[in-house]
Design a protein around this nucleic acid. Structure first.
Lengths: 344, 344
DNA sequence: ATGGCGTGTGGAAGCGCTTCATGGAAACTT
DNA sequence: AAGTTTCCATGAAGCGCTTCCACACGCCAT
């Protein structure tokens, strides 16, 4: 029935070495001659050997497995984040277990009861807001934890300065003539999902506009779910308030894409009559020439993984905060073809 | 740090029994005298003993973990399904690992990976259509597999009789005066997602109408994606074809919701001028008074988990098919306030 | 030569559990 | 009374790994 996995013994036999040597190769112990190491690695390869994490955990107290908990897996943001995390962890021969966990209740249940949580040497949590749902923002686990796309005074956190991103957007759009609009992506407070990033972006945006002396009336804001559809509706709404040129800060690339679509459908000149600025720096933004406030998502993932590695290796200092800065990427969706931009 | 956990040895010593006896208590083995069992349990209690799951896995050659593979995690249908599965499995002290897997390619990759070998005693696959993408509909795994919301002659399957649901809808709506319309949710053939359920519902619906002697012209059908928006557009489309009263079989609750919204927006009397029947039995259907063909999704999940448990315990009989029947739930969205329904 | 040292390597011991051959005692048989 | 069966219970063996002691070997200094 169950196809038996090869064990360390078979690897040892095939490579013509002892048990201990194979184990030493697995654990990157320095005292192995390079040729021997190579021979062992080849034997592993040939046998399709993977170490049994449960056995490692039992024998060595470590499993070389890291759990990544995130609300979704199918979105671009998390894909990029995982890419960054994987890059660092796989190189150190760690395994990854992914857990898409949508609700805080489930998050708690997972941490408290799951054997898998128990198996894991460390945890990376993406986008969860712990302060509200866990007492003192403390998770029921004694494993090292790193948060990413979130902040918490108890754990190492890696996050983007979304407010700064909003400011960049505001400062940039303030340079153009025409009315200024913004779209805010709705946040669902009961879901664990990236609680406040959209509010922070908007707050920074408002700040920058104020400092630039450009008014931002309340009805120039449109609130919608994270969808292209939302962007389309928003543009139609904006066109009732003012006539072109319009400058739209879409709050998220996906929404910005909807704005672009609708603009084209209405025959408006993108980049002059309608200027659109996204937020995220998704791959498709480049394809369609969308200007955007880009997040270094892969780098954030990689940094989170590094912090976790340090913790798993015993580092016990106080929680660290790593703040990443977004970057304005200018493309055709805001570039006026023709006359130079107006600067008030 | 972590205070050292007591082990089976300490429990045995304290209870004054042998190792094996403690193990048998842990595994609910019948051959233990009740007094002995009680003594052991008390010793465990007093020591605060919990078995080390990794040791169990390693010694027993089992992982006590079940993987659930599904296309999405964030929809109501899968939430309910998981609830049913979890209920059964957690009680038997099994762990759950969730894998949202959208494409068949990824499904194959997962099945062939070694994570599976160590992490999983059994698999529950939801909504995948294997026949097209896997040779002979056979999966590359030697673990027991149960399918849910799908059918396949090689594996135990748990599914809803969608055709019957369609029939119920048809028979029911045929009793009302006014034109009959239906919405069919589009199926995306490249995605693995619930391939044919919507077609089956429609087929049953058509059958029933025919038997009832009620015509169903081809242009009374509207095809759309699974969204509220789709329902809204559908109703507008239907109103061009006939004037109220209208009877709409929406094919899915989410779509039905859009129909209701649009009807209200247009000032039509829901339940008399426009009658709407959904499909699914989502929680919000009750809230808004939507009549619907309800699926016992939790029960389906629970049944699937039970079938899998039996397989994991060694049952080796031929594949079993468990067919669930939907249930018509009548609410205000089809209840004519006032005159009794017209029966032709 | 002799000793001392560092570098690689082998394999026994042990992690906490399950399984299984073994056997004692009590309950049935003939 | 002796044999047979059933019921409980024991503890050694083993799961796949890490760790660590032991040892072989080459190299250098004396």
């Amino acid at each position: 029935m169950r196809r038996k996995q090869p064990t360390i013994h078979e690897v040892a036999a095939r490579a013509g070495v002892g048990l201990g040597t194979v184990s030493r190769v697995l654990n990157n112990h320095p005292a192995v001659r390079p040729e021997t190491r190579a021979r062992v690695l080849r034997a592993m390869e040939e046998l399709g050997y993977t170490p049994n994490p449960h056995a490692r955990r039992i024998a060595g107290g470590r499993s070389y497995t890291v759990s990544v908990l995130l609300p979704f897996v199918a979105t671009e943001f998390y894909r990029r984040l995982l890419e960054g995390i994987e890059g660092v962890l796989l190189e150190k021969r760690y395994d990854l277990a992914l857990f898409p966990i949508l609700s805080q209740a489930r998050l708690r249940r997972y941490l408290e009861s799951s054997t898998l949580a128990y198996l894991t040497d460390g945890l990376i949590l993406a986008s969860y807001d712990l302060t509200e749902h866990f007492e003192e923002g403390r998770l029921p686990t004694d494993r090292p934890v790193v948060l990413v796309d979130a902040k918490n005074p108890r754990y190492d956190s890696v996050y983007l300065d979304n407010r700064l991103g909003g400011r960049l957007a505001g400062e940039y759009l303030a340079r153009f003539p025409g009315a200024i609009f913004a779209i805010k992506v709705e946040e669902e407070p009961d879901k664990a999902f990236r609680h406040t990033v959209f509010s922070e972006r908007l707050a920074g945006f408002r700040e920058a506009l104020e400092e630039a002396g450009r008014p931002f009336p309340e009805d120039h804001l449109y609130v919608t779910r994270l969808s292209q559809e939302g962007g389309r509706l928003a543009l139609r709404h904006f066109l009732e308030k003012a006539s072109p040129p319009l400058n739209v800060f879409a709050g998220a690339d996906q929404v910005a894409l909807g704005v672009l679509e609708e603009a084209e459908r209405l025959g408006l000149a993108v980049g002059r009559e309608v200027r659109v600025l996204g937020f995220d720096g998704h791959p498709f933004a480049e394809e369609v020439g969308l200007s955007t406030i880009a997040q270094p998502v892969e780098a954030m993932g990689a940094r989170a993984a590094q912090l976790l590695l340090e913790r798993m290796q015993g580092y016990a200092g106080p929680p660290r905060e790593v703040r990443f800065e977004p970057l304005l990427v200018e493309r055709t969706s805001t570039l006026t073809p023709g006359p130079a931009p107006y600067v008030p």
